[in-house]
């Protein structure tokens, strides 16, 4: 189980990396490598060239940019998990990281790499969507910003172009009083999720305001549950409402039959987890 041969570039600054990426060839960016290298060891991925961005220390940051927290491409999961800024503004991210791989993998793996890998059972693509994060994509001479909800197109499929680098994730600080919930079922903690449900919301005059819900591990990519959000908006929270919403989401889900459980099981998980997540979010909302 050894990777096939590739040529290796290790640029020292972002411009050099972008220039290399602009040239032709079957190229992959090597950041944390915690998803890419296993695939290379299995020879499921056989890139001709790797551009190692680990020397781009300019991208290693977690920074308060006023209304947003900006996370650079080289920020490791471990650093984000233990960051005081993240714990203060996005406790859901810190909590979710307990469910994402294990310490040694989090020491190397990066949030941006995880988002670009876009595994359908990965947690952060769902969380970035409910936090309404924006992703900064750079290529030679230009940059663009894309909303997280527009970035994920399918399993292992994103809106990034071959010559682009995801250099930064910008997460707006949530409104005061926002509550959150996170629930996941996997075989073991740290495994890819069979079903992850995440939500944030506020309570205004006893009613649900600005609910944002997303799910991973069920459909072909993590996505917001817009219909469920609409059904909850300005409603009084309660068990029967949550169960009804969960039923609707479960019925609309399109899970693939797999060894991780039948479609019926995935729907059961939605019915079990979504009300718990909403309850937690309501409890935490102030």
């Amino acid at each position: 189980m050894k990777p096939s041969a590739f040529s290796y570039e290790c640029p020292n600054d972002l411009q050099a990396a972008l220039a290399l990426l602009a040239s032709d060839g079957d190229t992959r960016i090597l950041a944390g490598g915690q998803s890419l290298v296993p695939m290379m060891n299995y020879r499921l991925a056989q890139p001709e060239r790797l551009i190692d961005i680990n020397r781009l220390s300019e991208l290693d940051y977690i920074r308060d940019d006023g209304g947003v927290i900006a996370i650079g491409a080289l920020a490791r999961h471990a650093a984000i998990k233990s960051s005081d800024l993240i714990k203060e503004h996005f406790p859901i991210v810190a909590e979710a990281y307990d469910w994402i791989a294990h310490a040694a993998v989090r020491n190397r793996g990066t949030l941006c790499g995880n988002l670009c890998h876009a595994d359908a059972a990965s947690e952060m693509p769902a969380i970035m969507q409910i936090l309404e994060a924006e992703l900064v994509l750079l290529k030679v001479g230009t940059s663009r910003v894309i909303a997280a909800q527009d970035f994920f197109l399918g399993t292992y499929e994103t809106a990034i172009a071959a010559d682009e680098i995801l250099t930064e994730v910008r997460i707006p600080k949530p409104a005061a009083g926002t509550g959150w919930g996170f629930e996941e079922v996997a075989m073991r903690r740290g495994d890819y999720a069979w079903c992850t449900v995440v939500a944030t919301l506020r309570i205004s005059d006893g009613k649900i305001a600005a609910p944002r819900i997303a799910m991973a591990g069920v459909n072909d990519c993590a996505a917001r549950l817009r219909d469920a959000e609409a059904a909850l908006t300005e409603q009084t929270p309660g068990a029967s409402l949550f169960d009804a919403v969960a039923d609707t989401v479960a019925d609309a889900a399109t899970p693939a039959e797999s060894s991780a459980g039948s479609a019926a099981y995935k729907r059961d998980l939605i019915r079990a987890l979504l009300p718990r997540v909403l309850n937690d979010a309501v409890t935490r909302a102030t």
């Binding site: 075989m187 099981y265 998980l269």
Partner: peptide, 11 residues
């Protein structure tokens, strides 16, 4: 009895 199997029995 993995969780999917056990949940199937419960269902």
């Amino acid at each position: 009895v993995t969780p999917p199997i056990l949940r199937g029995l419960i269902r």
